[in-house]
Amino acid sequence: MEVEQLQRSFIEYTSGLFREGFLDGQFSQLQMLQDETNPDFVFEVVSLFFEDSDRLLHDLSLALDQQNVDFKKIDAHVHQFKGSSSSIGAQRVKTACIAFRSFCEEQNVEGCLGCLQQVKQEYLLVKTKLEALLRLEQQIVAAGGAIPTLNEFS
């Protein structure tokens, strides 16, 4: 594919992610922080986010599977997940975390289990979409093009 076509796809795909609320302005901040001295910055941050999220979701599943659920521990995990998702702009994951925390406060196991499914689903969705976006980025770079700037979407 030609570079211009890849760049167009990149812009269309990204603006779709903003429009559908998967990403918010914080993701544009990450893209603006990427420069020649650190061309893989977004990839690196997003990869760290995936690693930590996989671990957090695993810990959350275990913690909710206990006979006596430790809501304080669950709340701490969800709080962390909310913080990291908001710092990369994964808006729908962040929103799902907010609902999760209110069920934690109520000590509602059923509500928490429902929220865990919701958070997992939103996370897997945004993960798939970010992976596709990063692949497009790599294709543009491999074809010798520059990543289009996204300031207009923030």
């Binding site: 901040q29 990450l30 922080l33 420069d35 650190n38 910055f41 690196e44 941050v45 760290l48 986010f49 930590d52 962390q80 913080g83 990291s84 710092s87 990369i88």
Partner: peptide
């Protein structure tokens, strides 16, 4: 910050 994703983002922001 205890979260490494946040540390990496904030550090980069300040370095910028």
């Amino acid at each position: 910050d205890d979260d490494r994703v946040i540390r990496v983002v904030e550090e980069k922001l300040l370095v910028r």
